[in-house]
Design a protein around this nucleic acid. Structure first.
Length: 599
RNA sequence: GGCCUCGUAGUUCAAUGGAUAGAAUAGAAGUUUCCUAAACUUUAGAUCUAGGUUCGAUUCCUAGCGAGGCUACCA
């Protein structure tokens, strides 16, 4: 059973009343209610300015008239006040308590009804030439969280990863390894495979720059030098060899990618993200080439004299875009065409979401336009979830220059900080070693995920390793702590054999002031899940979890729970707290964050 | 040059066109014989500039200034 939200009842009351008074049916847009601001008395506020043209009275009078009539009509037993044309409506506490009761017994709370629509969400999409860094963390946490939110909102979700396992950039690290590696392996160097490969990607860039420098000294222009350096030519040759299936190249590729995957798996596991399916570009680029052929036949694409294939999007306000190189090898766009096609034939999705940074806005603009030109039925369902870069105080991260915050290192440091902090506070009495280190992981990942997810995904954000990750204030651990404190109370109540489910909301006299705003939040959870799903925004859920924890902490500080003398009220308070804990757990779960029972 | 984002307390982030612009952190002052003080309370502090639309603009429009991204036969 889904509990009916108070706000919906109220809206319907306003609509009916307004129609009776002024003979106008308010549109959903005109019927918007705002939460009443703290400094005023009330739960919801109706702004009368936009509707005075129907009432033909000034805002103040309209609000007074409407308020009085609603007070008469509504079963919610409302009260009201008017401030400058703002109609503040206060719902009787009994209705709020009844609402709480409904939420408490609702087994479906936190899960919206199934929509029967399929969403494929692609995220992570690593390159196999370097380890994951801070930017990938934002991507992975975002992709995983958005998927969880969509599931809660009623979508059928498939999480997929598209591994960038081929291309010129992969050849660069392969080439550097071949030339400078001396047969080094993850075992021999005692490095995670992805880190080992990353080392050679940096090495390539270093040697390549040296060659460019030498050519510059011989009088070449920078542009020429970049094209003519032996290493880059060699890498290009290697890419062709790879596409032609030259056995030594393919073997080396397999070996090195295998190392990288082993490293990635370890990191994904620690991050707590997972995929229903993993695609590899090495398996999709050929399909992409076939689509390019199709487009050529249909004259949607065209071939230049050197043999390269292009699409002309100047009529769509964009440029011409390369789809196949003159040497016949495929580019990024070729692969993405193939992958889109493959995903659709695998899942027949309604929506296909790409979690990819905003530096690729143009790329996805082009991709979607091309698929539309090709008349693909799924083109309209494509959505680029374009998130902002994570900057460091020193500016942008550049993997080739080694100025990145490595994902594995960062998680290590976070866990270490969590350990130090926890031990200083002496919070782990009675923990064995395994429990303690599990807690450090939970806190470290909670802090990190919350920090990266609480910001609007679209916006660029700053990460300051020195002082960005805190355990106080608007942070993951703050919310986790609130959960742990409630868990302790519920534990104790159960030890005391208190059957708190038997509370009776009809016999509660004068519950604490914070009950109302907390139930308000609990009642708002489903709306927020919907909102967060439609906007692909975990930030809304993060804000919700924080508001709930914050509000509850006041209740916790001001109200003794187990020491309450009125037995019915005590039971209510335990049930109430446990519901807050459950809701915190669910909302944090939507962010991919675990909450501990003790900390 | 062209195209696209973004400019909010010292700092990091909020605010479907609505009331006196919210938090956190850093600063100042308090709260613990009482369920976990990783908490709570109080205090001070901000919309880049100039126009426009509106009953009402941080939000929409125009121009300027500032920051970033894209504009690769890299991905």
């Amino acid at each position: 059973m889904q509990s009916i939200k108070l706000v919906e009842i109220l809206k319907s009351d306003i609509k009916t009343t307004f129609q009776e008074l002024y003979d106008h049916i308010l549109t959903p847009n005109e019927l918007s209610l705002l939460p009443t601001r703290k400094e005023f008395e009330g739960d919801y506020t109706f702004v009368t300015f936009p509707v005075v043209r129907y009432s033909k009275k000034n805002p103040e009078e309209t609000a007074q008239m409407l308020g009085a009539a609603i007070k008469n009509n509504s079963a919610l037993n409302v009260d009201f006040n008017v401030v400058k044309g703002f109609l503040n409506i206060k719902i009787d506490i009994k209705s709020w308590l009844e609402t709480f009761k409904n939420i408490y017994i609702d087994a479906q709370y936190g899960q919206l009804p199934k929509k029967g629509k399929k969403v494929v969400t692609e995220y992570s999409s690593p390159n196999t030439n370097k380890p994951l860094h801070l930017g990938h963390l934002r991507n992975n946490f975002l992709g995983f969280s958005v998927s969880q939110i969509q599931i809660a909102a009623g979508y059928d979700v498939e999480k997929v990863n598209l591994v960038n396992d081929r291309g010129i950039h992969i050849c660069k690290s392969m080439l550097a390894y071949q030339q400078f590696g001396n047969g080094e392996t993850p075992e021999s160097s005692n490095m995670k495979g992805d880190h080992l490969i990353g080392k050679y990607y940096v090495k390539f860039d270093k040697e390549y720059k040296k060659e460019i420098q030498q050519l510059l000294e011989k009088g070449m222009t920078k542009e020429e030098a970049e094209k003519e350096a032996p290493l880059i030519k060699h890498a290009q040759k290697m890419l062709q060899d790879w596409e032609n299936g030259i056995i030594e190249v393919v073997d080396l590729w397999k070996k090195m990618n295998g190392w990288v995957y082993a490293g990635f798996d370890q990191t994904y596991k620690r991050m707590g993200v997972e995929f229903d399916k993993t695609y590899h570009e090495s398996e999709t680029y050929l399909l992409g080439k076939a689509i390019v052929e199709e487009g050529l036949k249909k004259n949607i694409f065209y071939k230049k004299e050197d043999g390269s294939v292009w699409v002309d999007l100047t009529n769509e306000g964009l440029d011409e875009k390369l789809l196949l190189r003159a040497d016949g090898t495929s580019v990024y766009m070729t692969q993405d065409l193939g992958t889109a096609e493959l995903k659709y034939s695998d899942y027949t999705y309604d929506k296909s979401v790409y979690v990819v940074g905003n530096e690729q806005d143009y790329h996805f603009d082009v991709l979607i336009k091309i698929l539309k030109k090709l008349g693909r039925p799924y083109a309209d369902g494509l959505y680029h979830l374009s998130y902002g870069m994570v900057d460091l105080p020193s500016g942008k991260m550049k993997s080739r220059e080694g100025t990145v915050v490595d994902a594995d290192d960062l998680m290590d440091e976070m866990a270490e900080t969590a350990r130090r902090h926890t031990q200083e506070l002496g919070k782990i009495d009675g923990f064995d070693e395994a429990q303690a280190s599990e807690l450090y992981e939970t806190l470290a990942l909670g802090a990190l995920k919350y920090f990266l997810l609480k910001v609007d995904p679209k916006k660029r954000m700053l990460f300051n390793p020195e002082d960005s990750i805190q355990f106080h204030g608007n942070t993951g651990p703050f919310i986790q702590y609130t959960h742990a404190r409630i868990a302790a109370i519920v534990r104790k109540a159960e030890q005391m054999d208190i059957h708190y489910n038997t509370f009776d909301v009809n016999n509660l006299v004068n519950p604490h002031d914070t009950v109302r705003p907390i139930v308000f939040l609990l009642d708002d959870f489903h709306r927020l899940i919907h909102e967060a799903a439609e906007n692909y925004s975990p930030a809304l859920i993060a804000q919700f979890a924080y508001d709930l924890a914050k509000e509850f902490n006041r209740f916790y500080t001001e109200e003794p729970i187990l020491k309450e003398e009125d037995e019915n009220y005590m039971k209510f308070k335990i049930a109430f707290s446990s519901q807050v804990a459950k809701t915190i757990k669910m909302s944090m779960g939507l962010l991919g964050i675990h909450v501990p029972d003790r900390m």
